[in-house]
């Protein structure tokens, strides 16, 4: 096994996290029309609630594990540039799979315009969140890893453009139905905005923290 295959392996290993996150998300999408006071509605809310908490804990564990692997790799002679590429490969793999899975879920359940834009918004937001949390952890890890790179910057801008255009499209779609937040759309829209905001915030905090360490170590991509 060569190093490239190793990083692919590592990236694929933690995909279960994103799959479970997507299931939680799909559940969330399916409860918006349920009466929370009914037995089914309440059960769905509880399942969703625990799934999402579990998803976030697992996600942090997954990133921590990845940081550990990158530290082990550096301790065995990997260059920081390759590690940075590995990190982006990791994030990108999660991103692509999240995109596929969420789309399939959205298609199977109810491929409505509102749900589609919500899904579209949440994917880059999740990616940003993943990068942001990753960067925050990397910037505090003992081994100095630089993750700033041109591909990351491009992806970040693409993600932000997708988020804002999705929000814009949500507004258009909602307005076309006669009101800004038609029945059933307020919860997913607000939740998506929160995820997007957290994602952007996490990414910027992570970038700022990491930037401090960048060229100091002469390892910028």
């Amino acid at each position: 096994m060569n190093r490239f295959k190793y990083w692919i392996n590592v990236s694929l290993k933690d995909l279960s996290i994103i799959v479970l996150g997507s299931i939680a998300y799909a559940l969330f999408m399916s409860i918006v029309d349920e009466d929370p006071m009914s037995l089914i509605g309440f059960s769905k809310i509880m399942v969703y609630f625990f799934s999402i908490i579990w998803f976030f804990f697992s996600f942090i564990t997954s990133v921590t594990r990845f940081v550990l692997l990158t530290n082990v790799a550096i301790s065995m002679g990997e260059t920081r540039k390759n590690v940075a590429l590995g990190i982006h490969l990791y994030n990108l793999t999660q991103f692509i799979f999240a995109f596929l899975i969420l789309n399939i879920v959205a298609f199977i359940t109810d491929y409505s315009a509102i749900k589609l834009v919500t899904v579209l918004t949440s994917i880059p937001a999740t990616y940003l969140f993943s990068c942001g949390v990753g960067l925050i952890i990397y910037s505090n890890s003992k081994t100095d890893i630089t993750t700033k790179s041109v591909p990351a910057t491009i992806l970040m801008f693409v993600a932000i453009i997708v988020i804002f255009s999705s929000c814009f499209l949500t507004g258009i779609a909602n307005l076309s139905s006669g009101e800004l937040f038609p029945e059933g759309s307020i919860v997913p829209t607000v939740a998506t905005c929160i995820i997007a905001a957290l994602g952007i915030l996490a990414y910027f905090i992570g970038t700022i923290l990491t930037r401090k360490r960048l060229c100091k170590y002469e390892a910028c991509l």
């Binding site: 190093r3 190793y6 550990l68 082990v72 790799a73 065995m76 002679g77 990997e78």
Partner: peptide
């Protein structure tokens, strides 16, 4: 690192 098995650690070493 405690969560990593010895064989996993040696596997990474064999790659690097």
């Amino acid at each position: 690192l405690g969560a990593m098995k010895v064989k996993e650690y040696l596997k990474i070493a064999s790659i690097y």
